[in-house]
Design a protein around this nucleic acid. Structure first.
Ligand SMILES: [Mn+2]
Ligand SMILES: [Mn+2]
Ligand SMILES: [Mn+2]
Ligand SMILES: [Mn+2]
Lengths: 225, 225
DNA sequence: ATTATTAGTTAGGTAATACTAACTATTATA
DNA sequence: TATAATAGTTAGTATTACCTAACTAATAAT
C-alpha cells in the first residue's frame, strides 16, 4: 500500500526528474530540491526518503541524489495519469474552468480504483493530452510525445494551435484567460517587433501584442493549412 | 476543517441515529455501538468523541449517550449526499455494478469541492434516490421521503418495484444479483406459502421462491396498474 | 441489596507525517 | 588548501489516529 503522501512524493520525483518543462534527459533529484518543490522541510523529506527506499520505490544513499526505481516510476506515472485524466474529465464533461481543475484533480488522483480510471479514460475517448496540453501516460506508463515549439519561434504569417504552457502559475493562466488564450486556441502570428522582441498576434481576427516572455511560455503546433 | 476520519464518524452517527433502516425517530448512540459499527475499539472512539465535541460537532457528557449538534448533522448529511451522488454517477454514467459502487464512493465522498458536487448532481439530473434506492439529501440536507413497504407485505396478485434493500451485506447483494433483482426490478407477487412463510414471485415471467427473510429485506413500491 | 455484566473511560504505547534546531558532509571560492 | 556556503542528516517534539490493558460507572440479575 502506497499512502497518499507517498504518492505525492513519487509524483514530485517524476516531475522533477523528467516531466518538468525543460528537462530533456532524466536527472537525479536532491533532497532540498524535492523539499522546496513540496513546500516541506528537508528533514521531513529525509525521513520519507527512508520509507520510500524501504518500500523499494527509490534508490538513495546517504548524502547522494535520489532516483526512482522502476516500481517507483510506474507508481508515480499512475498518479500523473490519474491527475491528468481527472483534469480532462472536469474540463470537458463538467465545464470546470481551466484554472480550477488542478486543485480538485490533486484530490481525485488518489482515488484507488483501476476500474474507475479505465472507465473515465474510455468516457473521455482515450485522450493523449490534458486541458493544459500535457501528455497523459497510458495505462502502461507510456508518455505520448508531441512536436511543439515556442510561439516566439513561429514564422510570421503562420497560424498555430496552443498545445501547452510552460508556466502554470495562476498569474500567467489568468493573463491568458484575459487574452482569451487556452488550449486549442488558434493564434496567427502577424509580426515580430525587433525593437523589444514583442510579438503581434491575431486571435479570432482581433489583434494583440504580447511580450517575448509570454510567447516563450506558449507551446504551439504550427498549422499546415 | 473536518478530517476524513472525522467525516466518517459523523456519517456513522447520522446512520446509527436516524438513517439506518428500521430507525423511525432519532435515537441517541452509544460509544460501543459506534465503535462496533466502525470496527474500531471503544477507546479509540472515546478519544475521537473528545475532538468532535471540541469542534462542536457532537454533544457528549461522560458516560452518557452521543447526539449530533446541528453543525455535526449538516456536515454528516453532506457526506451522505456526496456518497450517494457518487454511487449514482458510477452506476448510471460509468456502468459500474450495483455491488462495486459503495467501496469507490467511500473514497469519493471525501473530495472537497462544492462545485464538483453541484456539477455531478446536475449531470445526473438532480436524482432523489441512489442506485440502492436510498434517499439523497439535497444541498440543504433535506432528505426526500418515500412510501415503501416490505415485499412480504405486498398483496398476492400485485406487482411492485424494488426501491431499496434493508440489508447491504455482500452476501445479500450477490444473492439478489443471482436472482436478477436490483433497484427498479419489477416483481410480481404470485403466492404466499403459509407453511414456511416463503413467497413465490415472478420476475420477467420467470418464477422464483424466496424466504421470508429475503422478502423482509426488499423494500418496494406497489404498482397501481 | 449484592453481585455480575455491560458500557464507557483512562493510561500508556505505536506509526505516519509534519516541525525546529543542531549537527555533519560535500562543494565552491578565495 | 583553508574557509565559506550549500546540501543533507539527526535528535527531539507535536498531532492524528489507531491499539491493549486496566480501570470505573451504570445497569441487570439474583
Ligand atoms: Mn494539474
Ligand atoms: Mn495529490
Ligand atoms: Mn454506499
Ligand atoms: Mn468514507
Amino acid at each position: 500500500m502506497i499512502s497518499l503522501t507517498e504518492e505525492n512524493y513519487l509524483k514530485a520525483l517524476i516531475y522533477l526528474s523528467f516531466l518538468a518543462p525543460g528537462v530533456e534527459e532524466k536527472k537525479d533529484v536532491g533532497t532540498n530540491e524535492l523539499a522546496s518543490y513540496l513546500k516541506l522541510k528537508s528533514s521531513t523529506v529525509n525521513e520519507m526518503l527512508k520509507r520510500l527506499k524501504e518500500k523499494n520505490l527509490i534508490n538513495h544513499e546517504k548524502y547522494k541524489k535520489i532516483t526512482l526505481t522502476p516500481s517507483g516510476e510506474q507508481n508515480g506515472l499512475k498518479i500523473v495519469r490519474k491527475h491528468r485524466l481527472w483534469e480532462t474529465f472536469l474540463f470537458t464533461k463538467l465545464d470546470f474552468d481551466w484554472i480550477e481543475i488542478h486543485e480538485v484533480a490533486e484530490q481525485l488522483e488518489h482515488i484507488k480504483s483501476e476500474k474507475l480510471v479505465g472507465k473515465i479514460d474510455k468516457l473521455l475517448g482515450y485522450p493523449n493530452f490534458d486541458p493544459h496540453g500535457d501528455p497523459i501516460p497510458d495505462k502502461h506508463g507510456k508518455i505520448p510525445q508531441r512536436i511543439t515549439k515556442n510561439l516566439s519561434a513561429v514564422d510570421i504569417g503562420k497560424n498555430c494551435i496552443v498545445l501547452a504552457v510552460s508556466d502554470t502559475s495562476k498569474d500567467f493562466l489568468n493573463y491568458l484567460e484575459d487574452l482569451g488564450i487556452s488550449i486549442k486556441t488558434e493564434i496567427g502570428l502577424i509580426d515580430k517587433i525587433a525593437y523589444d522582441r514583442s510579438i503581434k498576434i491575431k486571435i479570432k481576427d482581433k489583434q494583440y501584442s504580447i511580450s517575448k516572455k509570454v510567447a516563450d511560455n506558449l507551446l504551439v503546433n504550427e498549422k499546415f493549412n
